[in-house]
Simulated assay, not measured.
Amino acid sequence: MRVGAVDWGIRIAVVGLVIGGFYAVYVNGVAEGWWHAWGDTPTVAATGPTAAPTPAPTVSSEPAMSGGYQIGPDGVLVRPAEFAADTYTKPELPEAAKENSERGAEAAAEHYLALLVYAWNTGDTQPFADMSSPSSQFASAIVRDVNTRYDSGWTYGMESNITHVLRVEPIEANGKDVPEGSIVVKYRVDSYDGTYCTKTKVHTAASRYKSTFTLIMTWRDGQWIETQGRFAGDE
């Protein structure tokens, strides 16, 4: 019996030493941070990406643009300053156009064409209208078309140059649309429509074109005025 009691005592002592060893390792591990103490809940650090705040939209102070052109307050593209209407000089009536002669009618017709081109490039139709008969359908159509263009756009770079004089001669009055003292003048002209804008669309002509320009110039109240006109294109 005594031997058995000693043997159990030794076993109990060994178990106690083992438990003590485990406890010492546990305590040391907690101290060193190898594991958490019993009953502690570990905190989890967020490792995912953080959402950056969305910046508030900024209002640009730059003017609205379309195709490289600034859009004006009326919704029409702003005409480039280097091609402004005031860069065009109003044609002056040549001295020859003040003569009541065939040469005077020819010079007046040349001036009339220059006023037509000036009207398209500036929007100023008054000089052209002043040299036209109120009954001229040709002149009325030109004035209407130019005004329509400038109501919602502009034109610059338009040209129409005389290349040949085809006819200059008196025409007999008919009591209707050909008054007394009229001379018919017919030219060959080379034209280019330039760059033109309608609201927010700009178009630049790709090529020149040729046509025949016919005018009936009438001597009235000491000056030549247009009473009939017509462009006839080659195509």
Rank of each mutant, 00 (worst) to 15 (best):
K186L: 12
E95H: 03
N28E: 12
N174M: 04
G104P: 02
K201W: 06
S207P: 07
A206H: 06
D86Q: 06
Y88V: 13
G20R: 00
G4Y: 14
V76S: 02
L115V: 02
W34C: 02
S132G: 07
D145S: 09
Q137P: 01
D234H: 05
R149M: 14
P55E: 15
A37C: 05
Q137S: 14
N121M: 01
V202P: 04
G67N: 11
S182K: 02
N100F: 01
L77P: 00
W120T: 00
V6W: 14
T212A: 08
G21P: 03
T58H: 06
R149F: 03
G29E: 14
A84I: 08
W120H: 02
Y209D: 07
A81W: 04
V30E: 04
F128W: 05
S152T: 13
H203D: 11
T122R: 01
V27R: 06
F83C: 03
Y196P: 00
T212M: 07
P134S: 10
T212W: 08
E172C: 06
A114R: 09
S191H: 03
S152F: 12
M158F: 12
Y69P: 06
K176V: 12
L166R: 15
R144S: 14
I71L: 13
S135A: 13
S160R: 03
A24F: 08
S182H: 02
A205M: 09
T54Y: 08
V18R: 03
S207A: 15
E226Q: 08
V146L: 00
A24R: 01
M217W: 07
G4D: 10
E180S: 10
I71A: 09
D124E: 10
Y26H: 03
W224M: 11
T50Q: 13
P73M: 12
W34F: 13
A232M: 05
P127M: 07
N28D: 12
K210H: 09
A105G: 04
A206T: 12
Y192Q: 03
H203N: 14
E226M: 09
V59C: 00
D74C: 05
G104T: 05
S135V: 02
W224C: 12
A46T: 08
K210S: 10
G9Q: 08
V184L: 14
Y209L: 09
I216Y: 01
T195L: 06
T58Q: 13
G157H: 08
S132H: 03
D86G: 01
Y150E: 00
T50E: 15
R149C: 07
A119N: 02
K176H: 15
T125V: 14
G153L: 07
V165K: 07
A141H: 07
A5R: 11
T195S: 07
G233Y: 06
F128Y: 11
D234P: 00
P80Q: 04
V78L: 10
G153R: 02
P73Y: 13
R11E: 15
Q223Y: 04
E159S: 12
V184W: 05
G75C: 05
N174Y: 10
S182Y: 04
T43A: 15
E235Q: 08
G222A: 08
G153A: 06
A107L: 01
D177F: 11
T200L: 10
I19P: 00
D40I: 15
L93C: 08
V146G: 00
G75D: 06
I19Y: 04
A206F: 06
